[in-house]
Amino acid sequence: MHDEPTTIDTPLTANLLRGAVETEHTERGLLPHRLPARALAQCGDGQLAMAESQPSGVRLALRTRATTVELDTVPTKRTYRGAPPRPDGIYDLLVDGSLVEQSHVSGGETLEIDMTTGDVQRHTGPVGTLRFTDLPERVKDLEIWLPHDETTELVALRTDAPVEPSPESDRAVWSHHGSSISHGSNAASPTATWPALAANTAGVDLINLGMGGSALLDPFTARTMRDTPADLISLKLGINLVNADLMRLRAFTPAVHGFLDTIREGHPDAPLLVVSPIHCPIHEATPGPSAPDLTESDLGRLRFLATGDPAERANGKLTLETIRAELARIVAQRAEEDPRLHYLDGRELYGPTDYAELPLPDELHPDSAAHRRMGERFTGFAFAPEGPFAGHDGRRSRAR
């Protein structure tokens, strides 16, 4: 007769997490955040609050002999009225850096969102449990990457052997900010977003500040990046400013300068890469705002439309073509005094030829295959021997 394995409860604390900027202690457990509370207090936008709490790039990092790991969570799932159902968020388990298993958690909260009116209704649900078994019986490093598109409240962690935080590595830390594409929209899992693919290929630690609908040159996001330790920094800017029809060229240019100035206050010498938008036909020459097209929702299809008037470009309305040209000009101007500032045209990651082969399913977001292509191309550019991140592939900058 064999003894039953001992179940060990480990308190969920911030030192078990990687990729989170801040954590919140709730009545049930621990909620990772990708923006600090002081930033959220400066903006009442529900889209931003939802996006930053979705833990893209956030993972539990554990060292243990455990062969069984159970994690209780409360996910917050989203449904959109008139749109096809969304699949459950995926948890990726890595053992010593290799993906070995994927799973999901049922239950949790549900946000029912009306994209035409902005109305949101919340429905409560129970705690769910994630269980990984038959893990190697040796000391190993485990990473559980949380769903990139589901707010995830961590409730309890149980194992059959003690766990401790994985030791801090000497890998370079890469901080990246962008839109829903960087956040991971349409990616198959949290390690399949293009930034996660690039980070894991290059051997760097990712802090993903890609936030759906919320790459809007907000000063508090720049301050968050300024105050967050990082060796490598990138910004993918443009598409959300057009989607939201948020500003015109007169405001855009100084806002970009101010964003870069703020980051440089905290990271005066870090390589800083500005990436312009990928190819997106609906907004190349047509301003925003974007709007959902639900005419084929009964067939399970959701697409977006550009509703702006191209004639208004003459009055400073932003298009992707305008933004790419202005970002290239700004970086060229500043690089005369900031040689570690670099520019990448986003169409090098995904351009018109890619659109013909791997079209954007909803006319805004790449699919999983395109995410992989973008991650490979970003790695090939940024971490190339002559690339902006050269020399930092897996090694923390000693100048930090």
Score class of each variant (00 low, 15 high):
residue 134 D to H: 12
residue 115 M to I: 06
residue 122 R to Q: 13
residue 153 E to Q: 14
residue 112 E to N: 12
residue 155 V to M: 08
residue 112 E to I: 12
residue 154 L to Q: 10
residue 129 T to W: 06
residue 159 T to F: 09
residue 127 V to D: 14
residue 135 L to S: 03
residue 116 T to W: 01
residue 159 T to L: 11
residue 113 I to D: 05
residue 136 P to N: 09
residue 149 D to L: 10
residue 133 T to I: 01
residue 144 I to R: 08
residue 151 T to W: 01
residue 146 L to W: 06
residue 127 V to F: 04
residue 134 D to Y: 01
residue 157 L to F: 12
residue 159 T to S: 14
residue 113 I to G: 01
residue 147 P to Y: 08
residue 113 I to N: 09
residue 139 V to Q: 10
residue 114 D to P: 10
residue 157 L to G: 09
residue 125 G to H: 08
residue 162 P to W: 08
residue 136 P to C: 04
residue 149 D to E: 11
residue 156 A to M: 03
residue 133 T to A: 15
residue 116 T to H: 10
residue 156 A to Q: 14
residue 140 K to A: 14
residue 127 V to R: 07
residue 127 V to P: 13
residue 150 E to M: 03
residue 109 E to G: 00
residue 155 V to E: 13
residue 161 A to H: 13
residue 149 D to V: 03
residue 155 V to N: 13
residue 157 L to I: 10
residue 136 P to D: 04
residue 147 P to G: 13
residue 149 D to I: 04
residue 141 D to L: 04
residue 143 E to S: 09
residue 153 E to R: 04
residue 139 V to L: 13
residue 137 E to Y: 00
residue 114 D to I: 02
residue 151 T to Y: 00
residue 118 G to K: 06
residue 161 A to R: 11
residue 116 T to I: 10
residue 132 F to E: 02
residue 150 E to R: 12
residue 131 R to K: 13
residue 110 T to I: 11
residue 159 T to G: 10
residue 109 E to W: 09
residue 117 T to V: 04
residue 136 P to L: 02
residue 128 G to Y: 11
residue 144 I to P: 12
residue 113 I to Y: 09
residue 109 E to R: 14
residue 147 P to T: 09
residue 130 L to W: 09
residue 139 V to C: 01
residue 124 T to Y: 01
residue 116 T to D: 14
residue 119 D to P: 00
residue 110 T to V: 14
residue 115 M to C: 03
residue 116 T to Y: 00
residue 118 G to M: 05
residue 126 P to K: 05
residue 153 E to H: 06
residue 113 I to K: 07
residue 118 G to C: 04
residue 132 F to W: 12
residue 146 L to F: 10
residue 127 V to T: 15
residue 132 F to S: 02
residue 128 G to P: 13
residue 160 D to T: 01
residue 136 P to S: 03
residue 144 I to W: 03
residue 123 H to V: 07
residue 113 I to C: 11
residue 121 Q to V: 13
residue 114 D to G: 04
residue 123 H to G: 01
residue 154 L to D: 12
residue 116 T to E: 15
residue 162 P to D: 15
residue 156 A to G: 12
residue 135 L to N: 04
residue 151 T to Q: 15
residue 142 L to D: 05
residue 128 G to R: 04
residue 116 T to M: 14
residue 132 F to Y: 15
residue 110 T to H: 05
residue 122 R to M: 12
residue 126 P to Q: 05
residue 119 D to Y: 02
residue 149 D to T: 01
residue 150 E to T: 05
residue 131 R to E: 10
residue 151 T to G: 03
residue 115 M to S: 10
residue 114 D to M: 07
residue 158 R to D: 08
residue 117 T to I: 06
residue 118 G to W: 06
residue 113 I to Q: 08
residue 132 F to R: 02
residue 158 R to C: 08
residue 142 L to I: 05
residue 116 T to N: 11
residue 157 L to W: 13
residue 144 I to D: 08
residue 134 D to Q: 13
residue 159 T to R: 10
residue 148 H to D: 11
residue 134 D to R: 08
residue 128 G to K: 10
residue 154 L to E: 11
residue 119 D to V: 06
residue 110 T to P: 04
residue 140 K to V: 01
